[in-house]
């Protein structure tokens, strides 16, 4: 198997991780990434937190173990069957790492069921990880709008949603407008970020939903 080239974002992540963790952890990481394509890298995936610690990286804010796991999945060029198994057998942190890695792997839309699974939970750790670049690229418009609403309902800030500016459509604005009206009717505040999206592109009446 050709070793996959490292996208710029992952190269930066790897550099940041190696810089941030203790020397011993950095050595472990370099070694395990080196043989990830052809060895039992899944046991490294399982113990990543114990190897690199629970701290967050200083620049990206990503937990170090998430970064290590995303890099491992990429180095191993994990396929659909593998990411599906690791997600289904993973704890919350492992699932989150799989979700974050999806956009870096050679996967088409076939991994969307993992994103859908995460969006059915009420665990914001998973929801944040599910609304990244992979979701922006592969969720259909109906799923994507509901992913945005899910963020609004669970308190995940809309800055976490990839492609918000490019994928927001009239129907999403209608939904957010209805949500804001419902909040106001109940005497509850409208979240600031929802207000900002609506202020930037106020929904006009009447709306006719458009499917892509």
């Amino acid at each position: 198997m050709d070793s996959p080239t490292l996208p710029q974002a992952l190269a930066a992540l790897r550099a940041e991780l190696v810089e941030a963790v203790p020397h011993e952890a950095a050595e472990w990481l370099e070694a395990t990434l080196g043989w990830a394509a052809d060895a039992d890298w899944e046991s490294s995936f399982a113990v990543a937190t114990r190897r690199v610690g629970r701290g967050a990286l200083p620049v990206s804010g990503m937990p170090a173990a998430d970064a290590a796991r995303v890099l491992l999945l990429h180095a191993a060029d994990a396929d659909l069957a593998t990411v599906t198994r690791l997600y289904q057998q993973g704890d919350a942190a492992e699932r989150r790492a799989v979700l974050q890695a999806l956009s870096y792997l050679h996967l088409g839309p076939e991994a969307v069921p993992l994103v859908e699974d995460a969006l059915r939970t009420n665990d914001t750790r998973l929801i944040v990880a599910a609304v990244g670049d992979y979701a922006a690229a592969h969720l259909d418009q109906h799923q994507w709008r509901h992913a945005v609403l899910k963020c609004v309902f669970t308190g995940v800030p809309l800055t976490a949603v990839s492609g918000l500016a490019t994928r927001t459509d009239a129907e999403l604005l209608r939904m957010l407008g209805d949500y804001a009206a419902e909040r106001e009717a109940a005497g509850r505040p409208v979240p600031e970020d929802v207000g900002e999206v609506l202020a930037a592109q106020p929904p006009h009446q009447p709306q006719h939903p458009q499917e892509p």
């Binding site: 804010g61 937990p63 750790r125 944040v128 309902f153 308190g155 800030p157 800055t159």
Partner: peptide, 16 residues
């Protein structure tokens, strides 16, 4: 635990 609320921006609990 960094994985709780402080990743990918501050997740504000909105009370909902």
């Amino acid at each position: 635990r960094p994985e709780r609320d402080d990743y990918a921006g501050n997740v504000l609990r909105r009370g909902a």
